[in-house]
């Protein structure tokens, strides 16, 4: 973890205790990325970010995260395809996937789930709902 590139390190909320749970955020919308990054880092996760599908693949290979938050409409490789690639890669068996998208149709949710996503979040989301789902996926009890 110390070998991670500098700009991929969380900007604040450094790990409190080991082992640190890592989260990869893939989102092309700068402001949304910023908000997600803030929320997760504050909670103590080691956050990595990517702004398109290709960068996400590189990040996934560099260090398999415990959770990947994937936007669906991404440049170069979309979220569904990333989801499929993660599920095909045995090295990423431990990675949980949450799809975050502005397209909330039933069919798309179903497609995401069929491709192996573990949770689905529709934009705009409530920050509380987001954190609840993240905690549930990572098996962390909610803060008292």
């Amino acid at each position: 973890m110390n070998n991670l590139p500098k700009d991929d390190l969380p900007k604040n909320g450094l790990p409190k205790s080991a082992p640190v749970t890592s989260v990869l955020i893939v989102e092309d919308e700068e402001s949304i990325l910023l908000s997600l990054e803030f929320l997760l880092a504050k909670e103590g996760y080691a956050v990595t970010t990517a702004r398109d599908g290709a960068a996400a693949l590189r990040a996934l290979q560099a260090r398999p995260p415990d959770l990947a938050l994937l936007d669906v409409m991404l440049p170069l490789i979309d979220g569904f395809e990333l989801c499929r690639l993660i599920r095909e890669n045995p090295a990423l068996r431990g990675t949980r996937i949450m799809l975050v998208t502005a397209r909330g149709r039933e069919a798309e949710i179903a497609r995401g789930m069929a491709l192996g996503a573990d949770a689905y979040l529709t934009k705009p989301f409530s920050t509380r709902e987001l954190m609840d789902k993240v905690r549930a996926l990572l098996g962390v009890p909610p803060p008292v």
């Binding site: 402001s31 997600l36 705009p124």
Partner: peptide, 10 residues
């Protein structure tokens, strides 16, 4: 939804 997401989140 994209700007709305940012607005709500922040």
């Amino acid at each position: 939804r994209t700007p709305l997401t940012s607005i709500r989140a922040f």
